[in-house]
Design a protein around this nucleic acid. Structure first.
Length: 103
DNA sequence: CACCGATGTCCAA
DNA sequence: TTGGACATCGGTG
């Protein structure tokens, strides 16, 4: 049972077109809450399953952000590959093309 | 009911 | 370069 705040986060994430990524900060700012951490938490727990492409959300450093903790082992490698398929190429855990970030 | 930890970003020195 | 602080979420006793 997500809160209104979380609903906005998921809605914004779903709004991301294929082949494009966004940052927690951009998302939080787009929602109207300067707190990007809540977004990361909401996506990390992402109760909305694959319906919410949390892998399209990265850190403002163009890194995988919250995914970095998991990239050590597994799930993230798949997400990174999925993004690469869409045109978002990651280099050593970093976005190789910053232009792919939503304005 | 209340506390704690966890999350990513920004600022200043 | 480094450290601290900010607001919100999740689980537990």
């Amino acid at each position: 049972m997500p809160t209104e705040f979380q609903k906005r986060v998921y809605a914004a994430v779903r709004r991301i077109p294929r082949g494009r990524v966004t940052t927690y900060r951009q998302l939080a700012d787009h929602i109207g809450c300067g707190c990007c951490r809540a977004v990361g938490q909401a996506l990390k727990r992402n109760p909305y399953a694959p319906q919410t492409p949390c892998h399209r959300v990265i850190a403002s450093d163009l890194t995988l952000g919250g995914f970095a903790g998991q990239s050590q082992g597994e799930a993230i490698a798949k997400k990174r590959r999925l993004l690469a398929k869409e045109g978002v190429v990651f280099r050593n855990g970093k976005l190789a093309d910053p232009a792919r970030v939503l304005p």
